[in-house]
Simulated scan of single mutants.
Amino acid sequence: MEKFNQEFRDRQIAITSDIEGGNAYDFKKYPGNIYSFTPRRDPGENYSGQVYYFKLQVENLQKDIANVTITAIADYDEIWKGWQPSLNPKIWIFSPNRLKIPEILTQDRVKSTPRSMSINLTLQPFEKIIISNMFTPPYSELVQELHDLAETYPTFLKLNEIGQSPLGNKMYSIRVNPQGESDNLFKILVGGTSQANEFGDYAAIVILQGFLDMGAVFWDNFTTKFSLEFIFFQNPDGMVQGMNMVNANRENLFFSHFHENQSMPLENEIIWNHIKANPPELYLEMHSFFQDHKTIRPYLYPLELLSEKKNRKFYLKIAKALVKYSNGMKEEIHLNQKYFQDTLCYRLMEKFQTYSFQYKLHSGMSINQKKLIAWDVFYLCIKNLKKMV
């Protein structure tokens, strides 16, 4: 992996991306307490590069209040279309160790041009904050959240470590009511995304928490027909290193679920081997993006992959419900479509006749909006499944 200038320090301010998920570099200072940086592209990634995403830490080194401007500069020579709709997002401010309670900067403190985004900060004496234009809690915090849930519901949730990434970061699954599982239950699998700095893993945790909040009567009714499992951290190294599409080995995990006779990246092998031991009837994968203007939408996979007419009918019923709920254009994936034929959704549908759906939230929406939508999408799926199973 390339070495980048990840730090800048003068008498007043220290700026660094040498933090979990940090990805800024090329720090510079200009007159008037203005500092700039460039968001780092995913190294080796040709699909997009994800130039719009950034996360970095800013610290006031003085005993006086500091008013500074931090400016993100687009890599204009290779600019990707994703930069433009990211120019007016919410900017999240995190205080270290308080990442569950981010502040959102008001629009008057964020100024954008086609090539840059300037963020005006007022830092209290010795204050240290993390700023980002995407709400992506760090891997370490999400891992702790899974352990907390498993400890809170020790008989109802089973947390399993299913493997480790090339850098040794752990990948997990959580099964709901494992004692009540049987072969005749309809299995639902919910996953985050291998696109590491999207909202996917957090959305999966939100769905799990929403399920638990429904209470014992709902659980009892649900588990008479369904089994439920969640998989987390399909790209944990990407989360830790501030990537999006690639892992520590520069492999694009999202588009690298190859046929079983082909070698896959380690993380994908772990996910695939775990799933194929007990494949799901339905797989829901959560994503987020800066696409369009605050749109949410499903990605639908080719009906031709389902061999039975009954299964195609069931798939269409769920698909129509998701499309009706959405305010953006559905994305229809075609048979053998480049890139997408090597996604996990496609391979599960092809190999196991799994009803596979991706759902894209919008990265610029508030946390509460995204939480509500994530739960609604899951509930729409099970509501329609209850009529079929």
Rank of each mutant, 00 (worst) to 15 (best):
S116H: 11
N197T: 07
E7S: 15
T224Y: 10
N67G: 02
E267W: 13
G21F: 03
Y299R: 06
L56F: 00
V240H: 03
P39Q: 09
F254I: 09
N60Q: 12
L146I: 10
N120V: 11
G191L: 01
L361G: 08
K383L: 10
I318W: 05
M243C: 10
A319N: 10
L167G: 04
G168R: 06
I131A: 08
L157E: 01
Y355W: 09
V58G: 06
P43C: 05
L208S: 04
K317H: 10
Y76D: 11
D64P: 01
K338Y: 12
T295A: 09
Q358W: 12
V217D: 13
K313M: 13
Q358S: 14
N327L: 03
F126A: 06
N23Q: 04
E141Y: 15
Y339Q: 11
N268F: 08
E78I: 15
G21A: 03
D10C: 08
V176P: 02
Y315D: 05
Q57C: 14
L253E: 10
G328S: 09
R250L: 12
E161F: 01
K313C: 09
Y52C: 11
K386I: 12
A321W: 06
Q241K: 15
T69Q: 06
Y30C: 01
Q369P: 00
A74H: 14
I101F: 13
A321G: 02
S165L: 00
E308W: 11
I119C: 00
T136L: 08
D183P: 06
I129R: 07
Q144T: 13
T38S: 12
Q195S: 14
L123D: 02
N23E: 05
Q107H: 09
L372Q: 14
W272I: 03
Y315A: 04
F352G: 00
I188V: 08
K387G: 06
I129Y: 07
I205Q: 04
L212V: 08
P96D: 10
Q107N: 01
L121R: 02
D292T: 02
N46C: 10
L142G: 07
E281Q: 15
P302K: 01
T295C: 07
L372R: 15
F233M: 03
V190L: 06
N88M: 03
F226D: 02
A150I: 05
Y25H: 15
A277C: 08
G44H: 13
I73A: 05
E78R: 15
M239K: 15
R347Y: 00
T295I: 15
T136F: 11
G168E: 07
L372Y: 12
K128S: 07
S363I: 02
E267H: 09
K100Y: 07
S182L: 04
F27R: 05
A66I: 08
L284I: 08
P154M: 04
K158D: 09
D220H: 10
S366K: 11
P279F: 03
S307N: 12
E45L: 07
N160G: 00
K371F: 09
S86F: 10
H334M: 14
S17M: 05
V323P: 03
L300V: 07
Q12T: 04
Y299Q: 02
Y202C: 08
P31V: 09
E267T: 15
V68D: 01
